[in-house]
């Protein structure tokens, strides 16, 4: 794919690149709709239980969420730099930037893990023996929080695998059109954008 080789049914490499890019964008549109369901649920929850929602959100670790936002945005920046480096023909820089994105993405997951562990200790993780919520709305909120951030974390993990695969792929690094790296970076930006919406929906809602 990334080698610039033309594949069936394309006659020209440029056309094939456009097609791959368009395919990626359409896939991302579909991902947006997937998370749309979660956001719709959060909106409904907040409309129906305005005060309870804010109280429940207040129990989240705002500073961990904020730190993670910074980490993920920086990781996205690395991905963007990797694309630029590949376009400039700096294959080694591209690899460095990609590994940087991977490292930061892993930090994101680690922080998320610490956060989940804390929530487990406080009895906020649903379905555990130690679970004790202050009220039904908090229970509902925490469930949605785990579903939303959990699904996001699955996407992060998948994105990390893609980034690593791109970093290991010499053809992709040397491709001046940055096709593979560009598509992976697009996916990674989407993962980022979704977080940028999850963060205010879940964390900032609790700021008083």
């Amino acid at each position: 794919m990334a080698e610039g080789g033309v594949q069936e049914p394309f006659a020209r490499a440029a056309r094939q690149r456009e097609a791959e890019r368009l395919g990626m964008l359409i896939f991302l549109a579909s991902e947006v709709m997937l998370f749309g369901g979660i956001f719709a649920a959060a909106l409904a929850l907040r409309l129906e239980h305005p005060a309870g929602y804010v109280d429940a959100a207040h129990h989240l670790k705002l500073w961990l969420g904020t730190a993670n936002t910074g980490v993920l945005l920086t990781s996205s920046l690395c991905a963007a730099l990797a694309v630029q480096a590949a376009r400039n023909g700096q294959a080694r820089w591209a690899a460095c930037a990609l590994w940087g994105a991977v490292a930061l993405g892993t930090v994101f997951l680690a922080i998320k893990g610490v956060e989940y562990a804390g929530e487990y200790r406080e009895g906020l993780m649903p379905g555990m023996a130690t679970t004790h919520f202050e009220g039904r709305t908090q229970q509902l909120f925490m469930n949605l929080y785990f579903i939303g951030t959990g699904l996001h974390a699955v996407h992060v993990t998948f994105g990390l695998a893609l980034l690593a695969a791109a970093a290991l792929n010499r053809g992709a690094r040397q491709d001046r059109h940055a096709m593979l790296i560009g598509n992976v970076a697009l996916y990674w930006h989407l993962v980022d954008v979704i977080w940028v919406f999850l963060y205010p929906t879940l964390y900032l809602a609790g700021v008083r």
Binding site: M33, G36, L45, R136, L140, N143, L144
Partner: peptide, 26 residues
């Protein structure tokens, strides 16, 4: 994808009772 997430929520509701669609939890 909207169907996908909706059905996922129903399955989660059924398996671990997340409550998004359950009036007993609000």
């Amino acid at each position: 994808p909207v169907l996908a997430i909706t059905l996922l929520l129903v399955a989660a509701e059924r398996l671990i009772g997340i409550g998004v669609f359950d009036p007993r939890l609000g």
